[in-house]
């Protein structure tokens, strides 16, 4: 991994990244966009150790958070804000597998991967099942009146139509979780072949597709969760 050395404007020492460990001064932000992988000291590749990422994030937060630089004024204060915001954004991006794959593909191919407008073929069946269940749940919820008293609320809690919908939501969610686990396993397989330059374009292509699958999965899970919550209340 290429290490980027930056000269600290305050004490003159050379430091890696955006933060001077020597004099605890935040360095000015260049026009160049930061690389999230190197920000956390990782190589750009499909698989990532989430525990190590979290540890590194907490460590950097300790140094970069605005709370640690409350005495700074003016531009320096803005720099702290920007860096801290980047750190949070970087963590969010790398932690989420879908976001990470998209980011990786974007960095490696120098263009943002296009989001698929079409449901990935392997998702079709689940997609339709979730869709049907959502419509049924909406109809059920529409016919349910808001409860003005506890006895009304209790009656709707005990309704068998509601429990049946909740069971079906759970079943579909479990199938979705299995799908996500399969994707994670495949990413680990791809990662093993990553260092072979000849294979890389194909791996990146596959990463973009897996990101699509995860994106659809995320959407499906979110709708399931949302309906479940509405049924629970």
């Amino acid at each position: 991994m290429k290490e980027i050395k930056v000269k600290c404007l305050s004490c003159g020492s050379l430091e890696r990244g955006d933060f001077c460990g020597g004099c605890h001064t935040i360095l000015p932000i260049g026009k160049e966009e930061v690389d999230f992988f190197s920000m956390f000291g990782f190589e750009s590749r499909p698989a990532l150790d989430a525990m190590a990422l979290k540890e590194r994030f907490l460590e950097l937060s300790h140094k970069l958070h605005p709370d640690r630089h409350n005495a700074e004024q003016g531009d320096q204060r803005l720099n702290v804000l920007t860096l801290s915001a980047q750190l949070n954004q970087g963590y969010r991006t790398l932690l989420d597998t879908k976001e990470r794959l998209r980011y990786l593909v974007g960095k490696q191919t120098n263009q943002e991967p296009l989001e698929a407008k079409q449901v990935p073929p392997e998702m079709m069946e689940l997609f339709f099942e979730v869709h049907d269940l959502m419509e049924e749940t909406d109809t059920y919820l529409k016919n349910r009146k808001p409860a003005a008293s506890r006895i009304v609320a209790a009656l709707s809690m005990a309704d068998s139509g509601r429990t049946e919908l909740l069971d079906r939501i759970n079943t579909l969610r479990r199938r979705g979780q299995q799908k996500v686990a399969d994707v994670e396993a495949e990413i680990n397989q791809l990662d093993k072949r990553w260092d072979d330059d000849g294979e890389r374009p194909a791996i990146l292509e596959r990463c973009a597709r897996l990101a699509d699958v995860l994106s659809y999965m995320g959407r499906l899970t979110r709708s399931l969760d949302e309906k479940e919550l509405k049924l629970e209340l």
């Binding site: 008293s149 506890r150 006895i151 609320a153 209790a154 009656l155 809690m157 005990a158 429990t163």
Partner: peptide
């Protein structure tokens, strides 16, 4: 009055659910 009288009934039903 009704709300108060039905508290236990509501509890039974919440419990069942």
């Amino acid at each position: 009055q009704l709300d108060e009288a039905t508290q236990r009934l509501a509890d039974i039903m919440f419990g069942a659910a």
